[in-house]
């Protein structure tokens, strides 16, 4: 369970977020959607304690992320931001190895190696494990980062726009892998998403934000309605019923 109580954040004196009060249940995938500048990434970053809120309290799996020991939090939640750039050259395997740092403190054990191998296999990276990150395509690199946070072996996984820079087939592949992480590994996955159709097809719940406020938090079926989506995105949205479920059309 992730709980946000009266969380607020002010930027540059005018852009404000919150107060946000929301409880996200454990298990499954929850997508954060909303127009640009709604505060989705900021909320995710605060939940992942990379940024502290101006006021309010955030708990993830019972841990107060601001108060608890950083290493304890690192065993409970893993967060991946959009931009990742390192000064050192790392191979895929070395990068994933860093995901074990909260458990190993840098000395990899047999157990850690097992987690690394599983993460490599889970994201189909075994063949690429000794390649440097800067020798990979955008999609492969994105998969390597996701493998790193999965290797961290945390109950909660937060991803900021994991589909950024991915083409259609890689996006589908990534979402299937996240779905498997939620279903087979029992992780609670929270993702910031731009494409509402991807969000509705692969997640369990949708949390919508507008102007720094949470405006809707519901199951996909209840969110995928013309009136609701039109209100969230501020542009007219129609719903078409497809065999795989409702599809939003907004051209």
């Amino acid at each position: 369970m992730i709980t946000l109580e009266n969380v607020t954040k002010t930027y540059a004196g005018e852009t404000t977020i919150g107060p946000i009060n929301v409880q996200i249940p454990s298990g499954g995938i929850t997508s954060l959607v909303g127009p640009n500048g709604a505060g989705k990434s900021t909320v995710l970053t605060m939940m992942g304690r990379l940024m502290s809120p101006d006021s309010g309290r955030i708990t993830v799996g019972g841990l107060d992320v601001a108060q608890a020991k950083s290493n304890e939090v690192a065993k409970t939640l893993a967060i991946l931001r959009q931009e990742n750039h390192f000064v050192t050259r790392l191979t895929v395997r070395q990068l994933i190895g860093f995901g074990r740092y909260p458990h190993s403190r840098g000395r990899l054990t047999v157990e850690d190696e097992r987690h690394i191998n599983e993460a490599l296999e889970f994201l189909n990276l075994t063949a690429l494990q000794d390649r440097y990150l800067d020798e990979l395509s955008g999609g492969q690199r994105q998969r390597a980062y996701v493998a790193m946070v999965l290797a961290q072996d945390t109950e909660y996984v937060f991803l900021d726009e994991p589909l950024n820079n991915l083409d259609m087939s890689h996006s589908v592949q990534m979402m299937r892998q996240l779905r498997a992480a939620a279903d087979d590994l029992g992780r609670t996955v929270i993702v910031v998403m731009h494409d509402i159709n991807f969000a509705s097809r692969y997640s369990d719940n949708i949390l919508a934000m507008n102007d720094g406020q949470v405006t809707h938090f519901d199951t996909c079926a209840d969110t995928m309605k013309s009136s609701v989506l039109t209100e969230i995105f501020g542009t007219s949205v129609r719903i078409i019923d497809d065999i795989d479920g409702p599809l939003a059309v907004y051209f």
């Binding site: 950083s70 290493n71 690192a74 750039h85 050192t88 860093f98 740092y101 840098g106 961290q152």
Partner: peptide, 20 residues
């Protein structure tokens, strides 16, 4: 040294990995 290895990944990643 090992802590420095992790710090070289930058503020966000090293915080995620449990370093202050």
């Amino acid at each position: 040294s090992r802590r420095l290895d992790t710090l070289s990944l930058g503020s966000a990643v090293s915080t995620n990995l449990g370093l202050n």
